[in-house]
Simulated assay, not measured.
Amino acid sequence: MTTDELTRRPALISSAVAAAGAILAVVASGYASLLGLALAVAGASFLALGLARGTNSAIDVACLLLFAGVLASGYEGDSVELALLGTVGTVVAWDLGQSAIDLGEQLGREARTTRLEAVHAASSAIVGLGAITIGYTLYVFAADGQPVAAVALLLAAAGLVTIGFGVRNRRSREPRRGGSRYS
């Protein structure tokens, strides 16, 4: 099979797990805030569009909206647990959405990537569960009556750091002008 015959569409398993992460973020956001629900639903819609079209920038916008929904819900609500779950759902949606697009572009949809995608999804879930555990432990032992808004701001900072790493990582994969990316 030549590269011209590849269907350069996002990988299906990673796309499905990204959608599940977005649904988790929508549910967590909608629990305490109508604004959070509206932002998260808009984010989930952009995610579907990004996965349908195979565009990384739509995935980025989608996850920013999902995360804004989580922050709004965390600010207006009183559930740290849901804010943490929504954040992990957002990061999983972003990570696996980007991965689905990259796998589709590089290997094509026909490639057998089930094992690779399953390992990536499991790794993201494990890292997410670890983040929830650490975040909740810090909240329980260090919060001492602090408002949930403080946790929302902490999540905002963590989200910005994650976005920064993703942009840096994407730029490092792009070839430099005037030569190969290794020159």
Rank of each mutant, 00 (worst) to 15 (best):
E105V: 07
S79N: 12
A42D: 01
L12C: 00
I101Y: 07
I59P: 01
V140E: 12
G178Y: 02
A111S: 14
R177Y: 08
E105G: 07
R176M: 07
F46E: 10
T55R: 15
T90M: 01
T90S: 11
L37K: 02
L103G: 00
A48F: 10
S14T: 13
A122W: 06
V151S: 01
A121D: 06
T3D: 14
Y182P: 02
S33M: 02
I59H: 02
A143G: 14
L37A: 15
F46A: 13
T137C: 00
A125M: 13
V26A: 05
R168L: 14
I59S: 03
D78P: 02
V27K: 03
S57V: 13
R112G: 12
V151P: 00
W94A: 09
A20I: 15
S57I: 13
L6G: 05
L51I: 11
C63I: 01
Y75T: 15
G69L: 01
S73K: 07
T90W: 01
T2D: 11
S14Q: 12
A143D: 10
D102N: 11
R171E: 14
T114L: 14
I163K: 09
S123W: 05
V148H: 10
N56G: 15
L154P: 00
P10T: 10
S15P: 08
R173Y: 07
A158C: 09
D4M: 12
A68I: 04
S29E: 03
T137Y: 05
L49P: 00
V127K: 01
A22M: 09
L65D: 02
A52P: 00
Y182W: 13
A32E: 13
A28N: 04
G30L: 02
A18G: 06
E174Q: 15
A156W: 10
A93L: 08
R112K: 13
L153W: 12
A18E: 08
I163E: 09
A20T: 15
L85T: 08
T113E: 07
S79I: 09
V92N: 05
V151Q: 09
A122K: 03
P10M: 10
A18C: 03
R177A: 15
A58F: 13
N56L: 15
R170V: 10
G69Q: 04
D102P: 00
L71E: 02
R181E: 11
A156P: 02
P147C: 02
A150H: 13
G86R: 09
I126L: 15
A68W: 01
C63T: 15
W94H: 12
V140Q: 10
A32R: 06
A16T: 13
G89A: 09
V80F: 00
A157L: 15
G130A: 06
L96M: 12
L84S: 01
Q146L: 12
N169C: 01
G36C: 09
L85N: 07
A121M: 04
G89M: 04
